[in-house]
């Protein structure tokens, strides 16, 4: 009888963590004391380390926003540079808690890899860069072209679709790393360089004479880039998703990293709910009710992140375009906090 009792209590102790509501991933992150974030190996504007090893970029800042929401400290992140080829495996195997690596949301990736896209952080599309001396002004003139790109991405498939549907011939030269794609393009191995348009702007800056190259007007694909988590931890997915929505909502309501403290006194009920003055929405995803204050203070709202990394405050100078908020002619539309 005593033995049975002991076995029963041991069993209860063993299953207790599984019974308790919550997120195993969040618990692990809190236990580690830092967030492990998979990012690009080096793509200016999205994720690139400087000479001192400090990471900057939109994808990086999103990781910082999550860290700020959890720890109230945007610096509690460890970045893992991942190549296009290994990124999903790195997340699946649990080496990172979150993959924030300019990754296109597609059906097969969302349904077959055991992963979950939480939202769209950047609406991108695949484009072409060519040297000006080629005198090509449209992608339709690229018949017979040699095109450089990198392996393990959707770009190879989009390229095949585009040339096939337009009845054009082409040859694809696919490298494993961005650096070699650019070097081969620079050495004249190919007539055009194709990847997401944001990536083309970033890579163009690395060329000796950036002005000798143009980005063609055609955008040949939809590339909604977003962060991913592993399936199976619903609350962790919610936490990441609502961090993104919080940043978008903060921009929509005019809450910035500079004015967030004054905004706490705002009379607008939407702002009061967002910042946790009314209600305690953060608690439902395992955070505190001032979670958005932490996010905006630590990393800024969506507009601030955009302008700082890829927009007018950066060398890339990409316009908001599709990445403006829904009420300013763009596609970003976050569900409300209520």
């Amino acid at each position: 009888m005593r033995l049975l009792f002991a076995a029963l209590s041991a069993f209860l102790v063993a299953i207790a963590p599984a019974l308790a509501a919550g997120s195993p991933t969040l618990d692990r992150v809190k236990k580690n004391g830092y967030l492990r974030c998979g990012v690009n190996e080096g793509l200016p504007g999205f994720a690139s380390p400087d000479s001192k090893g400090n990471w900057t970029g939109m994808d990086v800042d999103f990781c910082r926003a999550v860290a700020a929401a959890i720890f109230n400290d945007p610096k509690k992140v460890r970045f893992t540079p991942t190549s296009a080829k290994v990124r999903f495996t790195v997340l699946q195997s649990g080496e990172v808690d979150l993959l924030s690596r300019n990754t296109t949301w597609t059906m097969s990736r969302d349904t077959q890899l055991g992963l979950e896209f939480v939202g769209v952080i950047y609406y991108d599309g695949q484009g072409f860069m060519v040297p000006k001396k080629l005198k090509v002004t449209s992608a339709k003139q690229l018949n017979g072209a040699n095109v450089c790109t990198n392996t393990g991405t959707t770009t190879e498939l989009n390229l095949a679709d585009y040339f096939r549907s337009n009845g054009l011939k082409y040859k694809v030269i696919a490298f494993e790393k961005n650096a070699e794609v650019l070097a081969a393009y620079d050495a004249g191995r190919c007539d055009a360089y194709t990847t997401d348009a944001s990536g083309l702007y970033a890579e163009r800056l690395k060329l000796k004479n950036a002005n000798d190259h143009i980005i063609l007007p055609e955008i040949i694909s939809k590339e909604p880039l977003g962060p991913l988590v592993n399936q199976g931890d619903q609350q962790w997915g919610d936490l990441i998703r609502w961090t993104l929505f919080a940043q978008l909502n903060a921009e929509e309501l005019g809450v910035t990293s500079k004015n967030v403290d004054q905004m706490l006194k705002s009379a607008n009920p939407e702002v009061r709910r967002l910042l946790g003055v009314e209600g305690a929405f953060g608690e439902s995803i395992g955070l505190t009710k001032d979670w958005v204050v932490r996010i905006v203070k630590g990393a800024g709202n969506y507009g601030e992140i955009f302008e700082r990394n890829v927009g007018q405050g950066s060398p890339l100078k990409i316009k908001r375009g599709q990445n403006a908020l829904w009420n300013k002619g763009g596609l970003h539309y976050a569900p409300p906090v209520r």
Partner: peptide, 24 residues
């Protein structure tokens, strides 16, 4: 070969095919 874009087994199969199908 994959480093210089020669389409060998590792590049086209263990590279592109792997990331398209995810069946590592």
């Amino acid at each position: 070969a994959v480093a210089i874009a020669y389409p060998d087994l590792v590049s086209v199969f263990a590279g592109t095919s792997l990331s398209q199908t995810g069946q590592a």
